[in-house]
């Protein structure tokens, strides 16, 4: 009897939430469909194994030409030819970061719910921004190359739009989270909207803004590999040209140079960001 009374006080096991099994089921179904030959990309593990020799050939081609010995044997004689494209990539990244982050600053204030002047501007601005963000950097580069021909100009333009999307989004979310107390204080002191944003909001998010700008600069160095492929200037141009001639040893050297540049800039950037925030 006492045992019965004791168990009666125990709650019945709640029904398990269906969310987790449902999520796993959805994941498995989509994955299976995506892998299958009929509905998806046709993943074939056997082919990867039989193609192994192709990869080995790329890694060590057996060719005598110093430019095409293979990915594992970089051609250091090619180094001096990478300097100018690398510098161009660096210049493009600098210019695009400055322009992109400059434009993103006012945009972020328009698309944050804290500082947007009214709801129509807020939602309109957010809609435009989500379209800008939905277009990948390579697509901007393709369109701009079609518009003005190849060279660093369409590349910079593509990076600028890409940067506006990234920084405006990150910064507007930071602005959403600011302490609104100082805003109330500024209003109580008779400040107008612009003054309130400048003195009550901007100082709160400035370190984050600088950090996002540095982060964008890193992204731009990486992205320039990509946009160079479609003719928008920089190291990507050279990389893709060497790839098309199967000059694997030159490709290998470019990858190494790029790797060094990316890691160096990332290290400096992380150091600066730590000091800021």
């Amino acid at each position: 009897m006492t045992a019965g009374a004791a168990t009666a006080r125990r709650p019945t096991r709640p029904r398990r939430s269906p969310v987790v099994p449902l999520g796993i089921a959805i994941f498995l179904v989509i994955s299976w469909a995506s892998l299958s030959k009929d509905f998806g990309i046709g993943f074939d593990l056997g082919k990867l194994i039989t193609n192994w020799s192709n990869l080995v050939t790329v890694l060590v081609t057996g060719s005598d030409s110093p430019a095409r010995r293979g990915l594992l044997i970089p051609n250091f004689a090619f180094l001096d030819q990478t300097f100018e494209p690398m510098l161009e990539t660096f210049r493009m990244a600098v210019i695009a970061s400055v322009l992109g982050c400059g434009v993103a600053l006012p945009v972020a204030f328009v698309v944050s719910r804290v500082t947007s002047p009214n709801l129509a501007t807020l939602f309109g601005g957010r809609a435009v921004l989500s379209v800008v963000r939905a277009i990948p950097d390579i697509l901007y580069a393709l369109v701009f190359v079609a518009a003005v021909g190849i060279g660093p100009l369409p590349g910079i333009a593509a990076l600028v739009l890409f940067n506006v999307g990234v920084v405006a989004k990150l910064l507007s979310e930071t602005i959403d989270g600011v302490d609104v107390g100082p805003i109330e204080a500024a209003r109580a002191g008779g400040a107008n909207r612009t003054q309130t944003v400048r003195w009550a909001v901007l100082p709160q998010v400035l370190p984050n803004y600088v950090a996002y700008s540095l982060y964008t600069f890193e992204l731009n160095i990486r992205a320039s590999t990509v946009i160079g492929i479609v003719g928008a200037g920089g190291i990507g141009n050279l990389l893709f040209a060497q790839y098309q001639f199967f000059n694997w040893s030159n490709v290998s050297l470019i990858i190494i140079v790029l790797f060094v540049l990316v890691v160096a800039i990332e290290t400096i950037s992380i150091f600066l960001r730590r000091r800021l925030v």
Binding site: P182, A185, A188, W199, A200, P203, P207
Partner: peptide, 28 residues
């Protein structure tokens, strides 16, 4: 509002800027 100063329970200072910049908000 310019003739009415206000003081808050949570101070409402901009913590990431200097004291002087905070006080100058009163001159905006």
């Amino acid at each position: 509002r310019s003739k009415i100063g206000m003081i808050f329970q949570t101070f409402n200072l901009v913590k990431r800027t200097s004291v002087l910049n905070n006080v100058l908000m009163g001159r905006l």
